[in-house]
């Protein structure tokens, strides 16, 4: 778990370690409709709420659709690009095609409060926890 970022050089390493350790996590278990599908998703906890960070470089914002229903998020769209005509292609590693992925989160969400932001090829989905799902402190009388 990330606790502090005291040393700026150690910060990235500890983040990478934390991400690696979580790769085998069974937090979502079988609840994702397509684990391992495109695009890859990292899910973080931010206070009470959740934050999904999706790596989606080179997508036109208009080609990206996000739908939310109860605790399910659907990310779909297409990644397209073409080489100009008359060029000789030396190396082709980037992939193109369509994607459609559904992510079910084992936490009740507030669908109206979900926010999506796409910047620098990263899609960030702010997933606020539903008010009814938040833990409550019980005062002892």
């Amino acid at each position: 778990m990330i606790t502090t970022f005291a040393d700026p050089f150690d910060a990235l390493l500890s983040l990478q370690r934390a991400l690696d350790a979580q790769l085998s996590s069974d937090w979502l278990q079988d609840s994702t409709a397509s684990r391992g599908g495109f695009p890859p998703i990292n899910l973080f906890q931010q206070g009470d709420d959740l934050l999904a960070i999706v790596e989606l470089p080179g997508i036109d914002k208009d080609d990206l659709q996000i739908q939310a229903k109860e605790n399910t998020i659907r990310i779909s769209g297409k990644k397209a690009m073409a080489f100009p005509e008359g060029v000789s292609v030396h190396r082709r590693e980037r992939i193109i095609g369509e994607f459609d992925r559904t992510l079910s989160i084992p936490v009740r969400l507030d669908p109206s409060g979900i926010k999506a932001e796409y910047r620098d090829g990263i899609l960030a989905l702010y997933l606020p926890r539903a008010e009814s799902d938040k833990p409550r402190t019980i005062s002892i009388s």
């Binding site: 778990m1 990330i2 983040l15 991400l19 790769l23 391992g36 998703i41 990292n42 973080f44 959740l50």
Partner: peptide
């Protein structure tokens, strides 16, 4: 990576 500050990974599929 300062954007990742205060975030706790719950479920991850890629490293950064």
């Amino acid at each position: 990576f300062s954007k990742y500050k205060d975030l706790q990974p719950l479920y991850t599929e890629y490293n950064v």
